[in-house]
């Protein structure tokens, strides 16, 4: 009986923790969005953060995009060849990249490279009282630290996604056409026939929302970090894990909504 009560207490405490944390995160995001229309408008900081989140992740995206497209083409080609449907290689590679793999892998790459760094940077600013210093200068920390990252994330992710899909399709081309001997016309011609504007919009919606999710979670974890180096280390890990899990869960629900 005591063991059951202990288990119930642990489950209850966990549920309360999740609800409280979700509420705090919601208030954090709402407050950041609330301040967006008010001056000062720090365009320079937004550009700097686009450089940090977007431009500096480009090389990783080029590499992962190319090889994702290549391995996708290789796997799909052999599957399709069993049914004599190799000509559908182009659209399947393109649709997989545009609707799913592009937005998701891009988001995971940005989480690993930029999300962790954001959480660590803001966390260190918190424990060294730099955020308090901003506050005591009567400057809004949300305007300087959070909003530029949110905007940069929402702008950068779709652009990175575009690059990922572009190089992924060409990676698929290099395997399908260059190695497997499919004709170039078949590969690209079928892509034109099968990929619609709605597919591209689906990928766009996903990458926009992922951009918001990553920067929101990473900034939140950094902003409310624990004490000392251990606190920052925990926040960084939590930012990466929570962002990655949330991306995959949100991807399912968003797909369900968009497909419906």
């Amino acid at each position: 009986m005591i063991q059951i009560l202990t288990l119930l207490r642990i489950i209850g405490a966990f549920v309360i923790f999740v609800i409280r944390e979700t509420g705090r995160m919601g208030i954090f995001l709402a407050e950041a969005i609330f301040w967006i229309p008010f001056p000062p408008y720090l365009f320079g900081r937004v550009v700097r953060q686009i450089n940090f989140i977007g431009v500096k992740t480009t090389l990783v995206i080029l590499l992962t995009g190319t090889f994702t497209g290549m391995v996708l083409a290789l796997q799909i080609y052999f599957t399709l060849s069993k049914f004599g449907a190799e000509s559908r290689l182009g659209p399947i590679v393109a649709l997989s990249l545009i609707k799913e793999l592009g937005p998701v892998i891009c988001a995971l790459m940005v989480t690993g490279r930029a999300g962790s760094a954001l959480a660590a940077e803001i966390g260190i600013m918190r424990i060294t009282e730099q955020i308090d210093a901003l506050d005591t200068m009567a400057l809004n920390p949300y305007k300087y630290l959070i909003i530029p990252n949110l905007i940069a994330g929402v702008i950068s992710l779709p652009l990175l996604n575009f690059i990922f899909v572009f190089v992924g399709v060409w990676g698929g081309y290099s395997v399908g056409v260059g190695i497997m001997g499919l004709s170039s016309g078949t590969y690209f011609g079928n892509i034109r026939d099968f990929v619609t504007g709605a597919d591209i919009l689906e990928g766009l919606y996903k990458s926009l929302s992922f951009g918001m999710l990553i920067t929101w979670i990473s900034c939140y974890k950094g902003y409310f970090t624990g004490y000392g180096a251990e606190g920052v280390s925990k926040s960084t890990t939590q930012a990466v894990v929570l962002s990655s899990v949330t991306i995959l869960i949100w991807n399912y629900f968003l797909t369900s909504i968009l497909v419906a």
Partner: peptide, 13 residues
């Protein structure tokens, strides 16, 4: 707050 200034323990630079 604009009337205040604060020098933090570690400087907070």
């Amino acid at each position: 707050k604009e009337r205040f200034g604060m020098v933090f323990q570690g400087g907070a630079l």
